[in-house]
Write a protein that binds this DNA or RNA. Structure first.
Lengths: 342, 342
DNA sequence: TTGTACGCGTTATCAG
DNA sequence: CTGATAACGCGTACAA
């Protein structure tokens, strides 16, 4: 090992202050404040003079636990996850916790690997921010890996659906989509196209189901329904398929905002004028997309709060708690992309 | 310390395989492959059977270095930084490096604190992704803290301007802005409004300067110039000020896309029809904003590549290298928001 | 090729 | 209230 790197250690500080290593440790991390005021000041002065910084890994090995939490997202460049991450980071900062972020690149199996890695890292918690998937085998392995992680002393919290036996921030996707579709019906739309997301993602399925719920409650069903990736291009392609089919639709509901924006682009490329020729609605209320034109009707989700809540759950976790569930609803926001029909 | 938590250690594996700790260590981390094939297999089998995961903090203390890199951004919810982060994370993944992300909340002094924290964390590198600022005192302290961090064995790489004695991915903001403005002049615009960013951010200043360069090369200067935050709302407010002044402008150039979008919103709220009544251009080519209407003329930056390059520099850093500089230029993209003037 | 033993920087127990 | 000192889990000279 190359020990040529300098670095002030706690025993340097102790030496400088003329006290024992133990005492120096006590004043630096303040575990027990049973330290003489004069001694305390001497140590603090020495630490400051030497520009001492505690060695994180060493603290972590000695304590058996690090002060980091891990956040696992599908894709950090997706504004949905970026906003959630901002919430997690802000809250983590208040608790003086470090945040390490990993991306699954939309491959659910990678959550397993990150969990195992975190078991080794002795992180305090891992927050799984991506949608749960419908894959019994995978969920089974995930449950086992979670158990192993928790046995090692960490806590897991999920943001999305309560399909795992852990603390969960439950997003009311289905109810939100139902309410959105209900309001669109009230606006006079009848011929609905639904741009569904990847079928295995429960978030996408719940939103789709919510829309269908509302329609069938009105004795209707969508005149077109097609799935696409959970991205702008996925929305563009799905919309293009509907247009190519020649199906007449009044209103297209996409299961998230980025798909909705892709759909709007496809409609325009097909010569349509929005919102006159077609109404479009999304889901999430992504901040960056609030200025698209016409402004997008959607379901607002408090994304940053989601992240913040998840971190708070992670921090307040108890030894062997019954999994907690915090439910978060979305608010329907009707804007110019879905004007009243006639 | 609560040692009730189970956890398989390397010596458990060694015991199970009937070898010494040293041998187990050798096969697990493969430092020297001078291990008998049979023994090697026994150890691997034992590790797999016990579901062993190396203890990260312990490895880090023993090696004197962790396998994490830190990324410091102004705000992870800003799509500019989110994209850079995606690049860093993808590249880090290929190098089996963990990435921990911190946000300065746009307070430059916080970079100092994160650097000190990373000195303690023994991270391999820290990537400073935010613009440098014009604050001699701060830069001085930063330089000293960087020196301390590097003395502890880490490497620093900056994405933005080469104002610090470290490896830097230099973004050619000024040249990009100059080229953008030049092309706008060619399109026939003459009465320019410039929405500058926070004066202390060098990225904002360079872009502003680039625009002014091009204008004065044509014997012009902006008819309006006002600064605002580097955000959507900053753009909205800056544009509103120009409109309130009643200054007649042909074309507004914002120093980034999110400000440009805010400016478009302000213009619309003021009754203008875009792009007929006003041309607007931005900078960055944020992916999420590619579908705004009219589509935004801008300077495309390879954001994800920026992050990737920074990580590669961090990984290939040498002991005492002369700081390296990688220059990255932007590409002007003219779209519908700046149609030819007559 | 394999094992022994020490070191890494802290924390925490147990005497004093 | 303070000081020795044994862990913590792993890497690696050095010896065998």
């Amino acid at each position: 090992v190359d020990r040529s790197q300098s670095s002030v250690t706690l025993s340097d500080v102790a030496k400088e202050a003329g006290v024992s290593l133990a005492t120096a440790s006590r004043v630096i991390n303040g575990t027990t404040r049973r330290v003489g005021e004069d001694v305390r000041e001497r140590v603090l002065a020495a630490a400051h003079k030497l520009d001492y910084t505690p060695n994180g890994p060493a603290q972590a090995t000695a304590r058996g636990r690090s002060n980091a939490v891990a956040l696992v997202v599908h894709d950090i460049a997706d504004p949905y996850f970026a906003s959630i991450s901002a919430g997690v980071m802000r809250a983590a900062d208040e608790h003086r916790l470090l945040v390490s972020i990993a991306s699954t690149l939309r491959q659910p199996e990678r959550e397993l690997a990150y969990l195992a890695s975190n078991r080794g890292q002795r992180s305090r918690a891992v927050i799984l921010a991506g949608s749960r998937v419908d894959d019994p085998d995978l969920n089974d392995r995930l449950t086992r890996e979670i158990a192993a992680y928790e046995r090692s002393g960490g806590h897991v919290v999920v943001i999305s659906q309560p399909t795992l036996p852990v603390d969960t921030v439950v997003v009311e996707n289905r109810a939100g989509a139902r309410e959105l579709a209900t309001q669109l019906l009230e606006l006079g739309y009848r011929r609905f196209g639904v741009l569904a997301g990847p079928p295995q993602l429960i978030t996408a399925r719940d939103r789709r189901s919510g829309v269908l719920d509302a329609l069938s409650a009105a004795g209707l069903q969508p005149v077109a329904l097609t799935a696409g990736e959970f991205t702008r291009d996925g929305g563009y392609e799905a919309m293009s398929r509907i247009l190519a089919d020649g199906t007449e639709v009044d209103c297209v509901v996409a299961v998230n905002d980025v798909m909705a924006v892709g759909a709007m682009a496809a409609a325009r490329d097909h010569g349509m004028v929005l919102p006159n020729d077609l109404a479009v609605a999304g889901f999430d209320d992504i901040a960056t997309l609030r200025d698209v034109n016409p402004s997008l009707s959607t379901v607002r989700l408090p994304l940053e709060a989601l992240g913040r809540m998840a971190l708070e759950m992670a921090v307040t976790a108890e030894p062997a708690p019954p999994p907690r569930r915090s439910h978060v609803a979305g608010d329907v926001v009707i804007r110019d992309s879905t004007p009243p029909k006639n």
